[in-house]
Simulated assay, not measured.
Amino acid sequence: FVASVDRQSACFSHHPDAVNQYGVLVNDEEYTFVFHWFFMTCLWAHGTPIYSERQETLPIEYVDIRQFIREARPLFESEATVTVRVEGTNLATGEPRTVTGTVEGVQSVVGGEESDPQIAGQVTLIVDTGHERVRIGGWNAVVEDVEATRIVVTDVADVDSYPSLRAGTEPAE
């Protein structure tokens, strides 16, 4: 069992059949980040969802920049225009900041080399607001302009090419 609450607290316990029978409660953002990555790499990436209330029509919300990039990759590769609203923290001031614009690019770097954004490395989303290019990072962003806590896909140009994003319809099989 793993639970992460507002990126500030985490709860963890072993599988009931495990030899070690204990649980951990953490109220620290850095340790919560460790439990988050344990969940994402060891459980989520390899598991099959049993139930989801996730919306498949616009707007679609993400709390993880990597999952957004994985799922939106076909849109980026087809050069579709993806409009997003990013809620997060301005890293220069520490103040909340919301950025709205089109995704201009995605950068994923490990050790100075371009890489796949699946698990490791720095991932940056570049959003063009019409006035500026804003660099968006995920949890624990350091070098970007904004640390995203929520990414909302608000529009996709040429939505007919992506029936699962057409409002009011069922996702394509």
Rank of each mutant, 00 (worst) to 15 (best):
W44Q: 12
A45Y: 09
A45V: 04
A45P: 01
H46D: 06
T48E: 15
T48G: 04
T48C: 11
P49K: 11
P49F: 07
I50P: 00
Y51Q: 12
Y51V: 13
R54P: 00
Q55A: 08
Q55Y: 00
E56I: 05
E56P: 01
E56G: 10
E56T: 15
T57S: 07
T57C: 03
I60H: 03
I60S: 03
I60D: 05
E61V: 06
E61C: 12
Y62H: 11
Y62N: 06
V63I: 11
D64Y: 09
D64N: 15
D64C: 08
I65W: 03
I65A: 06
I65D: 03
I65V: 15
R66W: 07
R66P: 05
Q67F: 08
Q67P: 00
F68C: 10
R70K: 01
R70P: 00
R70V: 01
R70G: 01
E71G: 10
E71Y: 07
E71Q: 13
E71T: 05
A72N: 09
R73P: 00
R73H: 02
F76A: 04
F76R: 06
F76V: 05
E77Q: 13
S78G: 04
E79F: 02
E79K: 03
R85A: 05
V86N: 04
V86T: 03
G88E: 07
T89A: 01
T89P: 00
T89R: 11
N90E: 09
L91W: 04
L91P: 05
A92Y: 00
A92E: 14
T93R: 01
G94W: 03
E95F: 02
E95I: 00
P96K: 02
R97T: 02
T98V: 13
V99T: 11
T100G: 02
T100F: 01
T100C: 04
T102L: 08
V103S: 04
V103H: 07
E104R: 15
E104G: 15
G105I: 11
V106F: 14
V106D: 12
V106A: 13
Q107N: 15
Q107R: 15
S108F: 02
V109W: 02
G111P: 12
E114A: 15
E114I: 13
S115W: 12
S115M: 10
P117M: 09
P117C: 10
Q118L: 15
G121K: 10
Q122P: 00
Q122D: 14
V123E: 11
T124I: 15
L125T: 09
I126W: 03
V127M: 09
V127K: 10
V127P: 10
D128F: 06
D128H: 11
T129R: 02
H131M: 05
R133W: 05
R133L: 14
V134Y: 02
V134R: 02
V134T: 11
V134W: 02
